[in-house]
Amino acid sequence: MKLNNIKLAAIALLVSFSAVNCSNDDDNRPTGPTGTNGTTEPNFTGVYAQEDQMGRPAINTVFVSMGDKDTFNVTVPSNQGVAFQTKFQTKLEALNPAHADPMYTNALGFNAEQFTGALATDVLTVSLVGTTTFFDGTNVLTGRTLADDVISTELLLIFGGPMGTDNPGLTDDNVDGNDKSFLASFPYLATPH
């Protein structure tokens, strides 16, 4: 009997609560405090927990093992180096066994440990003072434009060795551009298909 009363009271409370909610919201969305201009602001309350993250292109895809992919996405960048550099190096040496030799470098002059040490902290460096590009033949890793052939750059650094000439069939996927032209002005990306 008492339990039923409590339940009824709870239902009554819920009803009144939702009625109040509905009264100041014409489309049944939760609403927050009234804004300074007198209009009703959307609800931005609550805690948001991380699910995915990304810095440089294809890092999780290429260098992180299947069992670690979710973990990589919820490891803050400042902790990624310690957690993943060794694993990245193992992966790199599996992709291009020549990298097992610490004297062997890629076109950046990095051996396996140095290269994976740079990659394991997955942030994208973006220049504020000059050309922004993943690689344009001169500038390296100073940003990422829409048109940059990031995959061929990464393939070259993984497979190409010190001169970029090793494993010639693996250093370029031979897809050299997007299937739509980009815009010169904001928002820069092409219209959808």
């Binding site: 995915d52 292109p57 999780n60 992180v64 992919k69 979710d70 994208l124 434009t145 829409l146």
Partner: peptide, 21 residues
């Protein structure tokens, strides 16, 4: 890129950073 987000609404596909027009 990972099982927990694959195909979902939180799945990031790419990010870019470049100088504007």
């Amino acid at each position: 890129d990972a099982p927990a987000v694959a195909g979902g609404t939180s799945d990031i596909t790419d990010i870019y950073g470049f100088q504007g027009q």
